[in-house]
Amino acid sequence: MTAIEVKNCSVSLSGCEILRHITMSLSRGQISAVIGPNGAGKSTLLKAIVGLVEISEGEIAVLGHPISTYQPELLASTVSYLPQQPEVHWPITVERLVSLGRLPHLVAYEEISGDHQRAVSEALDLVDATHLSARTVWSLSGGERARALLARALAVEAPVLLVDEPVAALDPAHQLQVLELLRKKANEGLSVVIVLHDLTLAARFADHFVLLNEGEIAAMGSASEVLTDDNLRDIYGIEAKRSEGAIIPWRLNPPG
């Protein structure tokens, strides 16, 4: 069963074509890594799936239904999104931040209690941030902040999770912790789409790869199909070393 189906989708932003004729199908309960060089259109693809940017042609369906047919609240409780540079405009506590993830499930002025409270506590626990719950978000270190924000996205308890570079600010231990957590959630049925620059981590944790280049899909499939030496050379312009399945970017390799 597919989680996300993108058919011949193009996106233009201020007259510039960012994505061209994207067609892909992502399965449920898998981690799909969207990879590619800077400016390839990875973040825009995520935004298109969650309805933040208009698509100029094509169709995007989530769990079998076109996103245009979703009520906003239903889409919000089906797809959770964590942007690359999340904003937090007031010095709210971590607990309050995470509980904002319950908004799609709450009616106006309803307070967090019962099942909502359970979801918030679980999300905090998953990212190892329970001890931070009373701290204000502005007082956190980069890594703590990134985990608290991920907990906010997890607290939605949506069946589909889109995360844009969630581990860039984390130390290696917390990178592994977050990705292992996503792995575990995927095994439990969560469909994860993750933008990653770290090819080693991508190769280690993702089931499925979408390699974007200049707004088009350059390759798609398993690690062995996508993370080939040819693709790394032609698209990233690098040469990588391989060791027991890990890919280590080693030196620049000018194409041609």
Binding site: K47, V50, G51, L52, A76, V79, S80, Y81, P83, P86, E87, V88, H89, W90, I92, L97, L100, G101, L103, P104, R152, V156
Partner: peptide, 10 residues
């Protein structure tokens, strides 16, 4: 509080 984009996805 979480910015326009995340608010929309909520």
């Amino acid at each position: 509080t979480l910015g326009d984009q995340v608010a929309k996805t909520l």
